[in-house]
Structures are given as structure tokens and as C-alpha cells.
Simulated assay, not measured.
Amino acid sequence: MVDVTRLTFQIDAEGPQLTVKGRMAWALHELVHAGERGCTPIERPAPRWSDYIFKLRKAGLAIDTVDEAHGGAYSGSHGRYVPRSPVLVIEEVRR
């Protein structure tokens, strides 16, 4: 797991600089690096993906949720989070 603890970014090149910390910084880092394929809680386990996405959307990011089915003993569905806003990372602080 990448230990990103703070991430400063802009939405588009002209937007204001925003900073997120902790798990929101980690989630945004994962989304930016996943790009168009997006990420799921199955691929990148974390306890509260839906909350991180909710807060990032509230900060102004466009993030789609695509429902995907999965099989196995506990078959069902999960969300794939796909970033749609162009994000320019200005500073990334790691442990």
C-alpha cells in the first residue's frame, strides 16, 4: 500500500488548489493512478471507499460508480469508481 498522507491537487489546470489528507489522499492517489479503468474495493481494499468517494465528490471531483457483478461464495455486486475530472497533482506527501 502506498502511504500517501497528504495530497494537494487542482481540478483542471485553472481550478483552486485543494488538499486532502489521510485516507482521502490515499483514495485520490489510487483513483488518479487507476485512470479510466477505475478501482474497486476488491482490488484496493480499504474500509470505507464509499465515504472517501462521497467526500471527494463533495470537494468537486466527478467520479462515476459502475456496478459490477462478482462471483464466488459470496457473489453479489460491487462498485467500480472511475474518475472523470482531470486532476493535476501538485504535491504528494508520504510517510
Score class of each variant (00 low, 15 high):
Arg57Phe: 00
Val89Pro: 06
Ser77Tyr: 11
Leu56Trp: 03
Trp49Asp: 01
Thr40Arg: 08
Trp49Ile: 02
Pro83Tyr: 06
Ala69Leu: 12
His78Val: 13
Glu92His: 01
Pro47Tyr: 11
Arg44His: 14
Val32Tyr: 08
Asp51Tyr: 05
Tyr74Ala: 15
Gly76His: 03
Ala34Met: 05
Tyr52Glu: 12
Ile53Val: 13
Tyr52Ser: 10
Ala69Cys: 08
Val87Ile: 14
Val87Cys: 07
Pro41Arg: 08
Gly79Val: 04
Ser50Cys: 07
His78Ile: 09
Glu91Arg: 09
Arg57His: 03
Ala59Ser: 15
Lys55Asp: 15
Gly79Met: 02
Leu56Tyr: 07
Gly60Asp: 06
Arg80Gly: 05
Ala69Gln: 14
Leu56Pro: 03
His70Ser: 10
Glu43Ala: 15
Arg57Gln: 14
Lys55Asn: 14
Asp51His: 07
Thr40Glu: 01
Trp49Met: 06
Pro41Val: 01
Glu91His: 10
Ser50Leu: 08
Glu91Ile: 02
Arg37Leu: 09
Arg44Gly: 00
Glu43Trp: 10
Ala62Asp: 14
Glu91Tyr: 00
Val82Asp: 03
Val87Pro: 04
Pro47Glu: 10
Ile90Glu: 01
Gly38Ala: 04
Arg57Ile: 04
Asp64Cys: 02
Val82Glu: 01
Glu91Gly: 01
Tyr52Gly: 05
His33Cys: 12
Phe54Ile: 09
Ser85Asn: 03
Pro86Lys: 10
Asp67Ile: 13
Gly38Leu: 02
Val87Tyr: 07
Arg84Thr: 01
Val66Ile: 12
Val93Arg: 01
Glu36Met: 12
Gly76Arg: 03
Pro83Thr: 01
Pro41Lys: 06
Arg48Val: 05
Glu91Gln: 10
Arg84Ala: 04
Lys58Met: 11
Val89Cys: 03
Glu68Asp: 08
Gly35Ala: 12
Gly71Cys: 09
Ile42Asn: 13
Arg84Lys: 13
Thr40Leu: 04
Lys58Val: 12
His70Arg: 12
